[in-house]
Every structure is written in structure tokens, then in C-alpha cells.
């Protein structure tokens, strides 16, 4: 009764509560922050889109905070926490492993969800995807196409995603009955690295008939290298990526890849904070293989077509 009366008067006066004032009074705000030190602009954008869409349902908004990698991260996060009374914080990889940042957040008692962390942290929520299992599934697919000489371009050694994807690749090769010729090349998730390693792997007589790149951008680089060497994808060489970034559909040929549920993961992270059940909650997603036009049966007569 009283509530209705207040609402009616508020509507009449055009009164809307101020987030800062509301924050003071209720120790809550309508702001969630996403902090990241990730260089992949397309990945960060997908996180933002997933989180904002979920926030919108509850009338919340998303503050974005790019943070420097390494020791300086802590100070940047501290300034953000001082400046705004956040409802909660989402930490993107690889920063979600930064112990200084996690200590700070724990000390402030701020609800926090980590996206795709490698290591567990007592009492902190996490949203994960099974990159290892998905990389294994994708490698099994190449093996089922009859490829017996397969290259793998890795991500940066420090990143959690890179090591999980490599482990999944190794799992599949180890579990396969027949011996497989494996070529591993060190990449860093950039187009340039994919191109350079693609040239190195393909410009040789005993080249692999399939290359699995640990992310899409490197897979685009591998395709570029194949084009340059006049090797047709997928008939001379199959190329497989990981991410399913928007550009995977605007490549020639369209890229076979593993769909990262990045938007869904960010939305799940926001939902955990909005529901207020951030203590040691864990949500798991399974990336799926998306077969498009960049993979085909191994050329007859083995790898050397």
C-alpha cells in the first residue's frame, strides 16, 4: 500500500534513484565490472556482449577496465574499487590467475567470478570451458579423416588456454591406435605467428596434411601461408582453428573450428554475480566442433599430395 503510493509519487515526480546514492545506502550499486589484460580485442568484445546482455535483464550496467599485465594490475584494480562501489567483478583470462589481484579482491570482500582460470582459488566462483576435451574431439576428427601427419601450432606457453588445448591434442594422438607423425610449432595466438609457422610447416617435402592451430587468428595465418605456397585448402592441406570468431565465416575457405561459448560464459559469470551466489560456484561449458570447409579427407597416398 505504502509502497504503491511511493512508487506513484516517484513516477509523478520523475524520480529515479541515483546509483551512487543507492550504493551508499544499500552498499550495492547497479554496476558490474569486467577487468581484462587480454590482447585479443575480438575475444574481449564477445565477453562484453555476453555480460552486458545479462546485466541488462536486471537493470545493471557493465564497467570495462583494461588492466596492464603483471604487477601493475593490482594498483589499477585498486583504483577501480576505490572509485566505484561495484556490485561485483568479472576477471578475464589470463589476469584471473594473478595472485596479487585475487588477494586484493579477497581482502576487500568483493564478489568475483573468474573466467576460464587454470588454477582453483578457495571460495571464488569460476566459469570454465572444457578446452582440453574440445581439442581432443577436434583432433579425433582430423584422425578420422585419415590424416597421419598433423601439425599443431601452440599458443603462448604462459596462457592457460594454450596448455589445455595442446594437452587435448596430445590426448587424442596418444589414444589413437596407429602411429601419427606430429609436428609442433610455437605460436603466440597472432595471425603473424600462424603465417610464419604455417610457412615453416608447409614449405617442406614431408609437410603435414593437416594443421590444427590453437586459435582462429593463427589458423587464418596458416591458411594465408597455404595460399601463398599455392596449396589448396582443404584438398592439399586441412586447417582447423579454435574460437569460432566472427571472421571464421568470412574466410576462404570458411574455417572449421571449435566454438568457444565466450558470450555464454560471460553471461553466466554476470548471472552468478546478479544472483548473489558467488561463493565457490562453478559453471562448466563444453565447446563444440563446427565443421566448415577448411578440412577434408587426407589426400590419397598419405601426406605428400
Amino acid at each position: 500500500m505504502t509502497r504503491d503510493k511511493v512508487r506513484a509519487i516517484a513516477a509523478q515526480l520523475g524520480y529515479a534513484p541515483n546509483a551512487s546514492a543507492r550504493g551508499l545506502a544499500s552498499a550495492r550499486s547497479y554496476l558490474i565490472a569486467l577487468a581484462y589484460d587480454n590482447e585479443n580485442a575480438s575475444y574481449v568484445l564477445q565477453l562484453q556482449l555476453g555480460a552486458t546482455r545479462r546485466c541488462r535483464q536486471n537493470g545493471f550496467h557493465l564497467v570495462i577496465e583494461p588492466v596492464p599485465s603483471g604487477p601493475a594490475a593490482r594498483d589499477t584494480i585498486a583504483r577501480l574499487l576505490d572509485a566505484s562501489r561495484l556490485h561485483g567483478l568479472i576477471l578475464a583470462p589470463p589476469m584471473c590467475e594473478n595472485a596479487d589481484v585475487l588477494d586484493l579482491i579477497a581482502a576487500r570482500g568483493l564478489p568475483c567470478v573468474r573466467i576460464a582460470p587454470l588454477l582453483d582459488r578457495e571460495g571464488m566462483a569460476a566459469v570454465r570451458s572444457d578446452d582440453r576435451g574440445a581439442a581432443r574431439t577436434a583432433t579425433d576428427y582430423l584422425l578420422a579423416l585419415g590424416h597421419s601427419a598433423i601439425g599443431f601450432v601452440t599458443g603462448p606457453p604462459s596462457g592457460p588456454a594454450a596448455s589445455l588445448r595442446l594437452a587435448g591434442f596430445d590426448d587424442a594422438i596418444a589414444a589413437h591406435g596407429k602411429p601419427i607423425q606430429v609436428y609442433k610449432a610455437q605460436g603466440d595466438f597472432t595471425f603473424r605467428a600462424g603465417f610464419d609457422q604455417g610457412m615453416a610447416l608447409l614449405d617442406r617435402a614431408d609437410r603435414p596434411s593437416a594443421i590444427f592451430a590453437a586459435n582462429d587468428e593463427m589458423a587464418f595465418g596458416v591458411i594465408a601461408a597455404a595460399h601463398r605456397l599455392r596449396l589448396t585448402v582443404p584438398h592439399a592441406v586441412s586447417v582447423l582453428g579454435f574460437d569460432d570468431s566472427p571472421a571464421a565465416r568470412t574466410m576462404f575457405p570458411q574455417l572449421t573450428t571449435v566454438r568457444q561459448p565466450t558470450r555464454d560464459m560471460a553471461a553466466a559469470a554476470a548471472a552468478i554475480l546478479l544472483n548473489g551466489d558467488d561463493r565457490a560456484v562453478e559453471r562448466n561449458f563444453t565447446p563444440e566442433l563446427v565443421v566448415r570447409a577448411s578440412t577434408a579427407r587426407a589426400p590419397a597416398g598419405g601426406a605428400r599430395a
Binding site: 565490472a33 552486458t52 546482455r53 557493465l62 564497467v63 570495462i64 572509485a83
Partner: peptide, 16 residues
């Protein structure tokens, strides 16, 4: 973000 950092501001990304 570069401009926000100059004056201690923060950025709300409002996808609509």
C-alpha cells in the same frame, strides 16, 4: 579509456 585514465574516470560499455 585513454582519456578516462587522464582524469580518474571509468567507462561503462553499454551494448544495446
Amino acid at each position: 579509456i585513454a582519456a578516462c585514465r587522464e582524469g580518474g574516470h571509468h567507462l561503462i560499455a553499454e551494448a544495446i
